[in-house]
Amino acid sequence: MTDLVLGRSAAKVLDGVRQRIQAGELTEGAQLPTERELAAAFGVARNTVRQALDRLESDGILVRQVGRGTFVRQGLRGQASAPAPAQSQGVTLSQRMREASPADLMEVRLIIEPQSAALAANRASSNDLERIREALRASISARGLAEFEHWDAQLHLRVFEATKNAVLIDYCRAINRVRDEPAWYQLKKRTVTPELRTVYDRQHSSLVEALAEHDPEGAREAMRAHLLRVRQNMLGEG
Rank of each mutant, 00 (worst) to 15 (best):
R8N: 14
S9Y: 14
A11G: 09
A11P: 05
K12Q: 12
G16C: 01
I21H: 00
Q22C: 08
G24A: 01
G24S: 00
P33W: 03
T34I: 05
L38H: 04
F42K: 03
V44T: 10
R46G: 14
R46W: 14
Q51Y: 14
L53T: 07
L53Y: 09
R55V: 11
L56W: 08
L56S: 06
L62V: 03
L62F: 05
Q65I: 11
R77C: 08
G78E: 02
Q79E: 13
S81Q: 13
A82T: 15
P83Y: 11
A84S: 15
Q89N: 12
V91Y: 12
T92S: 09
T92F: 15
R98E: 05
A100H: 02
S101W: 04
A103C: 04
R109P: 01
I112R: 01
P114M: 00
Q115T: 06
S116F: 02
A118I: 00
A124N: 03
N127Q: 13
L129P: 13
R131N: 12
L136V: 08
L136P: 07
A138Y: 08
I140T: 07
L145P: 02
L145T: 01
F148Y: 00
D152E: 02
Q154E: 00
R158Y: 02
V159H: 04
A162P: 02
T163E: 02
T163M: 01
K164T: 07
V167P: 05
R173C: 04
A174Y: 00
N176R: 03
R179Y: 07
R179C: 10
E181R: 06
P182R: 00
Y185A: 07
K188I: 09
R190E: 11
V192K: 12
L196F: 15
T198F: 12
Q203F: 15
A212S: 10
G218T: 05
R220T: 08
A222C: 08
H226T: 12
L228S: 11
V230A: 03
Q232E: 15
Q232D: 13
N233S: 11
